[in-house]
Design a protein around this nucleic acid. Sequence first.
DNA 1: TATAACCTTAGAGTAAGGTCTAAGGTCAAT
DNA 2: ATTGACCTTAGACCTTACTCTAAGGTTATA
Lengths: 141, 141
Amino acid sequence: MLKISELAAKTGMSAHTLRFYEKNGLVSASDRSEAGYRYYNDADVRRAEFVKTARNIGFSLEDIGQLLSIRVDKKSHSCQDVTDITRHKLDEVNAKISELQSMQSTLQILLDSCCGGPEKATQCSIMDALEEGEFRAAEEN
Amino acid sequence: MLKISELAAKTGMSAHTLRFYEKNGLVSASDRSEAGYRYYNDADVRRAEFVKTARNIGFSLEDIGQLLSIRVDKKSHSCQDVTDITRHKLDEVNAKISELQSMQSTLQILLDSCCGGPEKATQCSIMDALEEGEFRAAEEN
DNA sequence: TATAACCTTAGAGTAAGGTCTAAGGTCAAT
DNA sequence: ATTGACCTTAGACCTTACTCTAAGGTTATA
Ligand SMILES: [Zn+2]
Ligand SMILES: [Zn+2]
Ligand SMILES: [Zn+2]
Ligand SMILES: [Zn+2]
């Protein structure tokens, strides 16, 4: 049985974060001392580590909640349920990458156009380009 | 002289957003009617469009504030001042892209490992991988 | 027994960039 | 004169994922 700070040390998450996750239904302690101290058993620890791993990969807390629902009752869920969540996350990641690549290319073009030197910015081609405004939004979402 | 809703229509930003930008020093109306209505002149409109363009590219409001400082007094700023902001943004974008590519590759590996079918998730390799926990955090920031 | 180091809770604050509401004043057209 | 569309403000609320504080109770060690 681990206390919260021990679980924090073990998982690399803070005690604050663990309490926050508990409030959001992700991780909780199966037992409490008489005084109310949280005590985490092995299953609790494995669940916390599952959450940590999913966070590392980049899943949102909401995604993780869904993955945990599957985890506690695998017989009632299919591989497809799992891939749906994973694919949805991948789609989000891919969309975000595209958006950022669009920014990247614009920024690179701007940088290539400007001397970057100590000259006064009165003729700066970056400022001119911003003034001209020929850039499209990178499609948020 | 444009009223706020006219400037909103012209720039594609909402009147709410324009007021919010004003509170943050990005865009304001040079004139007000007796009743307090904002009236934007040509220079105000150009400034608003500059802001919109910079937003489209992906600059933060803080970045834009700096770019606007340069814009109103180009003689006191150099091309290097401009490229510093631009390069800094590009560095951020590149870092974020790397992080997302790491997620992308992990998610793809997970998807490739799972059949994604209607079988029960008791043997799901994605769930197993999350349980094993061999993933590193994608280095936020 | 005293001291440090731990634990508890509710709730506030942070970042970034808006978005919306309430309560009321103004303006153009009918 | 009345409708309806527009404008004003301060300030609350939203998202996501924490992070911290206050005020107080507990536990282990010296
Ligand atoms: Zn130059
Ligand atoms: Zn330049
Ligand atoms: Zn399968
Ligand atoms: Zn599977």
